[in-house]
Amino acid sequence: MTRTLRALPTLLRIGLAEAVAYRAEMFVWVLSTTMPFVMWVMWSSVAERTPVVGQSGKAYSASAFSAYFFCAFIVRQIVSSWASWEMNFEVRQGTLAMRLLRPIHPMISYAMGHIAALPLRFFVVTPVTVALLLTCLDELPKDPRIWALWVPCMVGAWLVAFLSNIAVGTLCFFMESSLKVMEVWLACLMVFSGYLIPLDLFPPALRAVADVLPFHYQIGVPIEVMTGRHTFEQTARLVATQWAWAFALLMLSLVAWRSGVKRFQAFGG
């Protein structure tokens, strides 16, 4: 345990160096997350013509949509995971063997790689945050307690994103590649997380489906907390459920990893 802890700073340093080395690639990744802005254009054009009222009875004005999709961009930048692609690649190339040789659980080394990329991501998030504060300050919650809960909410969202990626990634031990599964997962994430459409605007039947899936806790919940859609009590309940999901996904990925890695044969070479 202490040995793992002592390795963490070095792992983070290596991760950061890698992120800086491939900064052009990361910049392209950032440019490719334009979806919130595409959705924002459409929703605000709609909101200017007729008032949009959600199932909860609260209205969405054009500036509420601006706030929502600015936050969607920010959340997506911070809460993002590519672990399942990394795993698929390494299993196919056989390079996962190198990770397995290290005296540290591979899940931890993947996690460190993700965390080390965050400083560069903050670089991109900062201007958008400034734009958010300048244009939609009125849409943000004033209650400091909500902002206090927002921090664990972001951590929880990141855990859900990372662990679900690992869980889908471990499928590649059992089938040749889980990239197609990931693609279906991603499409569901787009619709049911609130990334494209605020969940509040869903028709009740679709909303019921979204509520039992983990996707909402990955992107939608942090956005809703940031834009003041929930009271303090509601927020607390949502964060608790979110962490329960994170815990369940952690158990699932640990079990799947354990049984999957036994089948790993390190082909390639």
Partner: peptide, 22 residues
């Protein structure tokens, strides 16, 4: 090193899903 250019272009193309009057 631009392996992910494909994704960038696809995401620009995403904006084509709405009628251009928006």
């Amino acid at each position: 090193k631009v392996d992910n250019l494909t994704y960038m272009f696809s995401s620009i193309f995403d904006a084509a899903r709405w009628p251009s009057s928006v």
